[in-house]
């Protein structure tokens, strides 16, 4: 018996380190650019310029981050507003978009699923079709609309046009369809009207879906690029992602990489934290929104 058990066990032990090795390489590829960026953000520019750059953090972390946050991202000839201002803009944008999308999607899904009314399906298809009209295919006319509405360089302009959401509406619709009919009838008998039912039953039951969507939509809002590039042309309205990319002098002029990397780290930290801390909902959100 012992001899029989022996062979497969040693075999599995021997093979066990191969997956770990491959995954270790994967993790290295994932983490390496982040580590180098972090190290660079703690060095002085001359330290970075002396190739090869050190791979252990230097002592200028506080100085670099302090300068970036409070005085502004300075890189060569380029100046951006203080990073905290840009982070504030990004936060406003990410939170408004996430919350706004969730609110208007849950309301429209509720209308489409729990009522019967003329043009119901027409409205549903209108929302659905927005999937096929991303910003990228309507750049110029959208700017004209925003200009006509005096929404250029406003938080409203940065957020409101992005809060229509077919994906979130579809997700909520899918979930609402699984709520048993009898639950609605029980609520009717218990004297709950549609809005009371929404608040007391539908909303509490949707909590995990809302959390999952929130993570996905926060990333979506924070990481927006083309939209703030078009609408937030004023430096005051710049998001941190745009600000960071402006600090790279693509013309080949001098770039202060320690500042760029400090800003990059600050730009990636909030969404990464949200994903790591809300991992469970994030995975659920990914899977659900792709259905």
């Amino acid at each position: 018996m012992a001899a029989q058990l022996d062979t497969p066990m040693t075999k599995s032990v021997r093979r066990d380190w191969v997956p770990h090795l491959v995954i270790a390489i994967g993790i290295f590829i994932t983490a390496f650019p982040l580590w180098v960026a972090f190290v660079a953000s703690t060095l002085s520019n001359p330290e970075i310029a002396q190739a090869p750059m050190p791979l252990l953090p230097g002592d200028r972390a506080a100085a670099n981050y302090g300068e970036a946050l409070w005085q502004g991202g300075r890189s060569g000839r380029i100046m951006t507003p203080p990073v905290w201002e840009m982070m504030f803009n990004s936060t406003v944008m990410a939170l408004s978009i996430a919350v706004g999308k969730i609110i208007i999607s849950i309301l429209s899904a509720y209308a489409v699923v729990f009522f019967r009314f003329p043009f119901r399906m027409a409205f549903f298809w209108m929302i659905f079709i927005t999937l096929m009209l991303p910003v990228e295919v309507r750049i110029v006319p959208t700017i004209q609309v925003i200009t006509n509405l005096n929404m250029m360089n406003t938080y409203a302009g940065l957020t409101i046009p992005l809060i229509a959401s077919a994906t979130a509406t579809l997700l909520f619709r899918q979930f609402f369809l699984t709520i048993p009919d009898e639950l609605v009838e029980a609520a009717k008998i218990d004297g709950a009207g549609p809005m009371k039912f929404f608040r007391d039953v539908v909303l509490p039951l949707s909590v995990t879906n809302i959390a999952a969507l929130f993570v996905i939509l926060f990333l979506y809002g924070w990481n927006q690029y083309l939209w703030p590039l078009l609408i937030g042309t004023d430096a005051r309205m710049q998001t941190i992602v745009i600000g960071m990319s402006k600090m790279i002098d693509s013309a080949g002029g001098p770039t202060d990489w320690n500042m760029v990397m400090a800003t990059a780290i600050l730009a990636l930290l909030p969404p990464v934290l949200v994903v790591v801390l809300m991992q469970r909902w994030f995975v659920k959100g990914l899977v659900e929104t792709e259905k």
Binding site: E182, I189, V201, L205
Partner: peptide, 14 residues
Amino acid sequence: DIAMVFQNYALYPH
């Protein structure tokens, strides 16, 4: 002024 008992009970799960 009625009350109803459903086949699947229809209890509010939360």
